[in-house]
């Protein structure tokens, strides 16, 4: 285990040390302490290491993550795991806005609440939120899944494409072109697997599923030449 104390090591040096690791590295366990809410911790990782970030962090923690497993024990500022490609990012506290924004793959677990715009423009990432999400979550979601064990704020899934949304609690309002859909055995099995991967206990049968009605102009064949 390598422990990096941020009261002694600057963030740039921390990130550089993590970037210099090769896929066959033996230094697979890292712990980061004394965070003081610093921004951009453990961003751009590309190798399968495990990083425990011990405390509360600032903006863009674990952004662009590939392969690595990052656990944040406290609260996260704006944009945790933004543009995640693969691997796993887990937040044990609450997260601020735009968690997992634009994520292409991998798994993001927020054990507490996420704020507005969770999973905005998601492109394949799977997101499991133990609590609730704020307004405009999964806006323009293109692919992947968002699981919300609590409630969803206004305009869930506005202008959504193919992403799948599962909410256990109430939905304040659905966004444009987002509708409730049937929970088939196929989706139930998918949801069960997502919850189990996230290690969050919930009964999948209590969730409702939402997705695209595919009625926005972008879905209409007459507009095909515009793209």
């Amino acid at each position: 285990m390598n422990t990096i104390d941020l009261s002694k090591t600057p963030v740039r040096e921390l990130n550089q040390r993590l970037h210099d690791l090769t896929p066959d590295t033996n230094e697979r366990l890292w712990r980061i302490t004394n965070l003081k809410g610093e921004h951009a911790l453990a961003v751009g990782l590309t190798v399968p290491i495990e990083v425990e970030i011990d405390g509360h962090v600032g903006y863009y923690c674990a952004g662009m993550n590939k392969e690595a497993k990052v656990v944040i024990t406290g609260h996260c500022g704006v944009g945790v795991a933004e543009n995640i490609m693969s691997g796993e990012v887990r937040v044990k506290g609450n997260a601020s806005q735009a968690a997992a924004a634009s994520g292409h793959g991998g798994l993001v677990v927020i054990e507490g609440d996420a704020s507005a715009r969770c999973g905005i423009s998601m492109k394949g990432v799977d997101i499991v939120v133990g609590g609730s999400v704020g307004h405009m979550s999964a806006f323009m979601g293109q692919s992947g899944s968002l699981v919300v064990c609590g409630d969803a704020g206004q305009s869930l899934g506005d202008s959504i494409y193919e992403a799948r949304l599962y909410v256990q609690g109430s939905v304040e309002s659905l966004g444009s072109d987002c509708i409730e859909k049937e929970m088939t055995p196929h989706h139930l099995a998918k949801l069960e697997r997502l919850l189990s991967r996230a290690g969050i206990e919930a009964d999948p049968r209590r969730f409702r599923r939402y997705g695209s009605a595919r009625r926005l102009y972008s879905f209409h064949v007459d507009q095909a030449e515009q793209y």
Partner: peptide, 18 residues
């Protein structure tokens, strides 16, 4: 930003939310 709260006494165990 949280940076401003990071040195308050007992912040490690505080309830923190947006």
């Amino acid at each position: 930003e949280f940076r401003s709260l990071a040195n308050l006494p007992g912040v490690e165990k505080a309830n923190i939310w947006e």
